[in-house]
Design a protein around this nucleic acid. Structure first.
Lengths: 114, 114
DNA sequence: TGTAGATATGAACAAATATTCATATATCGG
DNA sequence: CCGATATATGAATATTTGTTCATATCTACA
């Protein structure tokens, strides 16, 4: 924050480009969605749902967790518009909100697998 | 974990596909990189560097933070191979490790901006 | 309508993590 | 070599967050 100081290196011109392209709101939004996905249990849920909708019991089975933990994570994913749900008899079926998320995750998978 | 129970819904076939395509290591790796990027201050640093290398002072300026906080985040980004650094006189210049990360972030930006 | 199955919720707890403050290290110019 | 600039590091703190446990809600069905 100390703007009275002038650094010796001369690479600062690009800062303005960055700041005009990305406002705080955009950055926080971008970070938020990655934070939501950046958790193994939630990541598993999303990846499992990418093969088709699942009821809670099957999600629990797929991600090898327990009902309560999964339910809490489903809520977070739903609140952040990554998944949606519908009732099907006694079950609540979850499915991906759109396929944009999977485009991102496919790139991430490529990146991890080098 | 209770595998004695059989759910009424019939959408479980896809679970095997998911589990064979993604092993634990891949998922944790994917989640980890998103967790690293899923933080506004680190996200800002990476986005700022996408316009070209910057020394620490200019990064501090770009992300409107302070030297110590930035330095800690730079370490995390470096340890996770998202950025690299080189010395240039008194300065340490940081730059992106590769352009794969920006492909991901460009998709994320699209997603956030709808 | 009462019971069992399916899912959600809330509080409590523990673990992870971002920030701050103080200080250490490293480089350069004189 | 010394002082100033530039960056890194470590400890302490405070906040966030994931999980667990217990319980509540809602639906189907007998």
């Amino acid at each position: 924050m100390e703007d009275t100081f002038e650094s010796a290196c001369k690479h600062g011109e690009n800062i303005k480009k960055f700041q005009s392209e990305y406002n705080e709101e955009t950055i926080v939004g971008m970070a938020n969605i990655l934070k939501i996905l950046g958790e193994p249990s939630r990541m598993k849920i999303v990846l499992a749902l990418s093969y088709g909708e699942l009821c809670v019991f099957h999600i629990v089975e797929a991600v090898k967790s327990n009902q309560s933990a999964v339910s809490h994570q489903l809520r977070i994913l739903k609140d952040n518009h990554i998944i949606k749900s519908r009732r099907d008899g006694q079950n609540i079926v979850y499915y991906l909100y759109d396929d944009h998320i999977m485009k991102i995750l496919n790139l991430v998978k490529e990146h991890v697998e080098e």
